[in-house]
Nucleic acid binder design. Structure first.
Length: 531
DNA sequence: ATTACTGGCGCC
DNA sequence: AAATGGCGCCAGTAAT
């Protein structure tokens, strides 16, 4: 059963179940809770608009259909990349009305919520767009797969909202201790922390002149004046210089980044009540990976992991997929040899024999194939790969060639790559055309693998969400890694659920495949203990 | 004063 | 000769 939902201000809204007339309710959350027993698929314009208030009321529906996310997937598949994807835009297109632009920028959600032009809550409208989308799904290259993609993307929207609400357990006291140990006590506003200032002073002493080590221009000038010019301010270029200022400068740069990315000001903004609550953007990356809006949740520094600690009596189950992308390639390409290697826990080790006995060689060969790498030993190793794993090799080569020709490519479930930019074709026919073509080839080559890996991870999470016992909660997701916060006594059950979810995700995407997708799951008190 | 871009580097 | 993909975010800087 589908139930279309249009929320209204004040906690009410309009509901419409399939085949029934729309009806207004005064307490939407209560009504959703009541109807959830019948396991409907909730259809709404945008999970980000609807779900937070339901969550606040403690309602966590099992499944939904997010019109905006689905519209984006459909438009891309239909070759209409870039058209407005909101539910209102979709409705306007259906009706031949002026199509509103998508809200964008930091005010995106406010604009969506408070736009005075917004139509009245209308469940009929939601149902109409939904029906249209279902018809369009049937016209995709593989409707069965695309339906899974839509379901997974929509589940991702639920999970993202839930994770933003639940938050990663974050110990501010431990964070402060870590920062103080590295940088010195928290400085007054506008001052450098003591350790950072000391390093800046060391740099100044080494160069015999004071300058701002945060300024790339001033760094370049300082090295030039000292008679040891550096190619850039990249750490590896600075390291080439023979000068006493190199060491303190590199130390400064490293700490300065830490201070500004993960310092006290960051914690003031993002950590509340012992939880770090980032805002995830589902499908924020063209490949279907998630992005974040502030907080930098997908770039948490490894050092920072020691401040992510389970609540008393609780535990963190941390699980990451081992070598996800080559496994995905093996399954997609149907390459028997590679699939056999991907039946092992350590895929690269299983391939070492093929590549001269070195595990590292196997890794370089696979990564070069998936990323389009050509430096170092890559050509030699790729030649081996071409001979030994011809189907996998051809799969990524085909994707690269299509990209170079300006075509779009699709993930396993049907997510479509963006077309080349408007100026690309001219660029390709110009003097630097070969480079532009190869650049795009590398992108599409990687797209098919990265996007399918993202789909596997999304399906994994959707399945896992349904298997978790209450009150265990998904609290973190980073491309191929998930974290569950749960009572300690649930750890074994959660670890088992992760394994089952991984198997189910593989089955849902690829059916019967010899490729294994092992998840290394551990229960730890502190994130830093997971690896 | 505000905005847009760049270089560099963290994560996968 | 060398040529790997996807991001977010910061400070500095240039442009407005």
């Amino acid at each position: 059963m589908n139930v279309s939902v249009a929320p209204a201000a004040g906690g009410g809204g309009v509901l419409r179940a399939d085949g029934e007339p729309a009806r207004a309710v005064t307490d939407l959350a209560a009504e959703v809770r009541r109807l959830e027993e019948r396991r409907p698929r909730w259809v709404w314009a945008d999970t980000r608009e609807v779900y937070p208030s339901l969550l606040a009321a403690g309602v966590r529906p099992a499944r939904c259909h997010d019109l905006a996310l689905t519209e984006g997937l459909l438009l891309a598949h239909e070759g209409r990349f870039g058209e407005p994807r909101s539910a209102r835009a979709a409705y306007a297109r259906l009706r031949g009305l002026p199509v509103p632009d998508d809200p964008h920028g930091p005010q995106a959600r406010q604009a969506t919520l408070f736009d005075e032009e917004a139509p009245e809550p209308d469940a009929d409208l939601v149902a109409e767009v939904h029906a249209d989308q279902l018809r369009r799904v049937e016209r995709t290259a593989d409707p069965h797969r695309f339906r899974l993609l839509v379901a997974a993307e929509s589940a991702g929207a639920l999970i993202a909202a839930e994770m933003a609400r639940d938050g990663i357990p974050w110990r501010r006291d431990a964070h402060d201790e870590l920062l103080t140990g590295l940088l010195g006590p928290r400085p007054v506003h506008g001052m450098r922390p003591a350790r950072l200032q000391a390093l800046a002073d060391e740099v100044a002493a080494a160069f015999g002149t004071s300058f701002n080590p945060d300024s790339p221009q001033q760094i370049l000038r300082a090295f030039k004046t000292a008679g040891v010019p550096v190619a850039s301010t990249r750490a590896r270029d600075i390291r080439q210089a023979d000068h006493p200022g190199v060491e303190p400068l590199l130390a400064y740069k490293e700490m300065a980044r830490f201070y500004s990315f993960h310092g006290w000001a960051w914690a003031d903004q993002w950590v509340r009540d012992g939880r770090f609550r980032p805002e995830y953007v589902v499908g924020g990356v063209v490949t279907g990976r998630w992005a974040t809006n502030g907080g930098g949740a997908l770039q948490i520094h490894k050092l920072m992991r020691k401040v992510i600690v389970a609540d008393d009596g609780w535990t963190l189950v941390v699980a990451d997929a081992a070598q996800l992308e080559p496994r995905v390639l093996a399954a997609m390409a149907g390459d028997g040899g590679l699939a056999r290697a991907a039946g092992q826990t350590d895929l690269y080790q299983a391939l070492a024999q093929v590549f001269g006995g070195e595990r590292d060689n196997a890794k370089i060969a696979m990564l070069s194939a998936m990323y389009g790498g050509t430096s170092g030993d890559a050509p030699k190793l790729l030649a081996v790969m071409r001979r030994r794993f011809p189907l996998a090799y051809r799969f990524v080569e085909d994707a690269a060639r299509e990209g170079e020709e300006g075509k779009v490519v699709r993930s396993w479930l049907g997510r479509t790559s963006p077309p080349p930019s408007s100026g690309w074709r001219e660029l390709v026919s110009g003097p630097e055309g070969g480079r532009a073509a190869r650049d795009r080839g590398r992108f599409t080559r990687n797209f098919v693998v990265q996007a399918t890996a993202a789909e596997w991870a999304l399906v994994l999470m959707a399945v896992l969400r349904g298997l978790l016992p209450d009150p265990a909660r998904l609290v973190f997701f980073q491309h191929d890694e998930v974290m569950v916060h749960c009572p300690a006594e649930q750890a074994d059950e959660v670890i088992a659920a992760v394994g089952r979810a991984a198997e189910e995700a593989a089955r849902l995407l690829f059916g019967a495949t010899p490729v294994r997708f092992p998840m290394q799951a551990v229960a730890v008190r502190c994130y830093a203990d997971a690896k």
